[in-house]
């Protein structure tokens, strides 16, 4: 049973990370205002939301299974307060930080029509901190963290996210960038 929980904890963590990578990529695409080939803009936004919720579900399973696991022995405090755990407290703490940020981003996203655009936007920016922290946690804390296949996966993910960010800050990022350029006197 313990072995199963342990394995499930690891796998769900990796799935969650991959899904969050996808969330970031689709989120950047949604922010550009562009459709994805034949997929319309509102669907891109829905995909962004749904992958994010799926990723969060796997994250909860990841944390939950490791709380039940007798080897990892995570307690409630470890889940919320970083850097207190018994095993590799720094790397595990990064995971806790990422988890807290995910909770903040998800909660403010679901409540965005109530809290208004300012708070929503401000908290949503934390995604850009959350993702590399989660990646570092996976490498530093994961059983497979330093295995070759995982490092390749991590490097590939980092490359596409950095690429997406470079596109995000480029001049022609917005779908409407061209018509709006030079539009101001």
């Amino acid at each position: 049973m313990d072995n199963a929980l342990w394995a499930f904890g690891r796998v769900s963590g990796i799935i969650s990370l991959v899904l969050f990578t996808g969330t970031v990529l689709v989120g950047v695409l949604a922010r550009s205002g562009r459709p994805l080939l034949v997929v319309p803009r509102f669907s891109v936004t829905l995909i962004h939301r749904n992958i994010a919720l799926l990723a969060t579900a796997f994250l909860v399973l990841h944390v939950g299974s490791l709380m039940l696991d007798s080897y990892a022995k995570l307690n409630v405090t470890d889940v919320v307060v970083p850097f207190l755990g018994p095993f590799r407290p720094f790397w595990q703490g990064l995971g806790t930080v990422a988890f807290d940020l995910v909770l903040a981003v998800v909660v403010t996203s679901l409540l965005r029509h109530r809290i208004g655009p300012r708070t929503f936007r401000a908290v949503h920016w934390f995604t850009y901190a959350m993702w590399p922290i989660a990646l570092a946690h996976a490498i530093g804390n994961g059983t497979n963290g330093t295995s070759r296949w995982f490092l390749l996966l991590a490097a590939g993910s980092a490359a596409v996210v950095v690429g997406a960010l470079a596109w995000r800050v480029s001049a022609n990022f917005l779908e409407t960038a061209k018509t709006r350029q030079g539009g101001l006197l």
Binding site: G33, R41, F42, T45, T176, T179
Partner: peptide, 23 residues
């Protein structure tokens, strides 16, 4: 004052809304 012309509403309500030159 909030609208940024991202175009989702014009996709969802094509019979009511067009997009202008700037989206």
């Amino acid at each position: 004052t909030r609208c940024d012309g991202r175009g989702l509403c014009t996709e969802l309500l094509p019979t009511l809304l067009d997009r202008d030159d700037w989206g």
